[in-house]
Write a protein that binds this DNA or RNA. Sequence first.
DNA 1: TGCTCATGTTTACAACTGTAAGCAATAACG
DNA 2: CGTTATTGCTTACAGTTGTAAACATGAGCA
Lengths: 138, 138
Amino acid sequence: MSKKHVQKTAPPAPEAVAITEAEWDIMELLWEKSPRTSQEIATLLEEGRGWKRATVVTLLARLTAKGALATEPQGNRFLYTPAVVRSACVEDETRSFLDRMFGGALQPLVAHVAEHHSLTKKDIAELKALLDQIKPNS
Amino acid sequence: MSKKHVQKTAPPAPEAVAITEAEWDIMELLWEKSPRTSQEIATLLEEGRGWKRATVVTLLARLTAKGALATEPQGNRFLYTPAVVRSACVEDETRSFLDRMFGGALQPLVAHVAEHHSLTKKDIAELKALLDQIKPNS
DNA sequence: TGCTCATGTTTACAACTGTAAGCAATAACG
DNA sequence: CGTTATTGCTTACAGTTGTAAACATGAGCA
């Protein structure tokens, strides 16, 4: 095998990797559609965020290194695919956010949002409907 | 005035400062009760977090420098008081979190939490009650 | 087969963060 | 008044993050 395509990945697929702010932009694109080439992603983010190709490639490498992305060689390049599921990542962020800000509970968050973002009647109705659909855990 | 107590504060009181993870621990203590001396805070966080006094003092200085804390000299020390209100900080975090994770809307978050944290019947009831109390914005 | 282009790798670097030691000055105590 | 204990200030340092240039190498075209 060539000397180049070595792309160090994290051995076991850790089901929870920390994804930074900038990295999220890349993950979102791949969660939305994958696999993609670095070029595809770079093009999208050059426009959308003004990033240089090099920046995108660095982030891809970091994400791969920490096991958030899986790569499949294709010629002299890679196809990138998420190796972690979005909802699990969202889950982690949500948990840590709720813990830090609201003692881990949902109610105080909803109360806060209600107070500060002024929910519309429609929002409230939707939330109620949503709650009705939930099958309680106990 | 002595040469020592200089404590650079941020000139205008910016109503929104970025507070880091570690800094939150300090702010929480001061929001809960203020003013406090550095000693008080250090003692609490030495036990609670295993931080050294120096660490606490550094963080106090950083918070003061960015205008999150106000200081009042008292003898050879300071009394520290929050210069930003908690709910405003929570607000910023919440907004940015909701934007990043859920497109800024509350519903998807609630849906997510319902699915992943399994709300109890009681939780759901509480949330509904909460929603009933909210006076819609429109 | 030689050259160019695309693509990953290495290196860089500044800002921010967590964590803290060491120093200086002042208050407090004897 | 001298010694000690407090307390803030300065400096430090490694790890993370955002951002990217430079480089090497393999692929594809001429």
